[in-house]
């Protein structure tokens, strides 16, 4: 792990556009009790910083209580982004995850995300009501998890699934 950020951001602009679209987002960490167990929760939106070095994902603290405890203890995070209609998937990993209060515009971001997610699920036959119910509530429990991605993996099903992607 280099001491300073790499000269180029690890994420391309195309990848950023994908992460911020209506993709399905699931966040994982490990329990911090010396007996690591995988923890998992669904997110309701994503924002990548202007310099493409920081990623924030939005979650419901109610749904993600155990995940947040794991993130606070270990800082280790893995996030998978998947567009249901195409199966295109990326996984980001980071080691410096922290749980923070939501930004002022996060409720609006989550609402826009939910619209985009429902639109994609409609393409493969899911009802609008179902797609919206899948997404965590954007209420007082909204929180964000911020991290610096240090690796990106192609998770699209097929021969390349699980391969680390490098910027060229």
């Amino acid at each position: 792990m280099p001491a300073s950020p790499p000269p180029d951001p690890i994420l391309s602009e195309t990848q950023v556009a994908f992460l911020e679209s209506g993709v399905s987002i699931n966040v994982a960490s490990v329990s911090g009790d010396g007996n690591p167990y995988p923890l998992l929760a669904r997110a309701c939106g994503c924002q990548v910083s202007a310099d493409r070095r920081q990623v924030a994902v939005l979650l419901s603290a109610t749904q993600a209580a155990a995940l947040f405890a794991g993130l606070r203890a270990s800082g280790s995070v893995a996030v998978v982004f998947n567009l249901p209609s195409t199966h295109h998937s990326l996984q980001l990993k980071g080691r410096d995850a922290r749980v923070t209060a939501p930004a002022a515009d996060d409720p609006a971001r989550a609402a826009a995300y939910r619209d985009a997610f429902a639109a994609d699920l409609a393409r493969i036959g899911f009802s609008d009501a179902y797609a919206r119910a899948v997404i965590p509530p954007t209420d007082a429990s909204l929180a964000r998890v911020v991290f610096t991605p240090d690796s990106v993996f192609d998770q699209t099903p097929g021969g390349n699934a699980g391969q680390r992607l490098t910027r060229t």
């Binding site: 699931n26 994982a28 490990v30 995988p38 998992l40 998947n82």
Partner: peptide, 20 residues
């Protein structure tokens, strides 16, 4: 609906993907 799956790598880091 595909299911998300989280695991822990040998080095203790999390891994997450979908399982059909």
């Amino acid at each position: 609906v595909p299911a998300a799956i989280a695991t822990v790598a040998v080095d203790g880091t999390p891994n997450v993907t979908y399982v059909s």
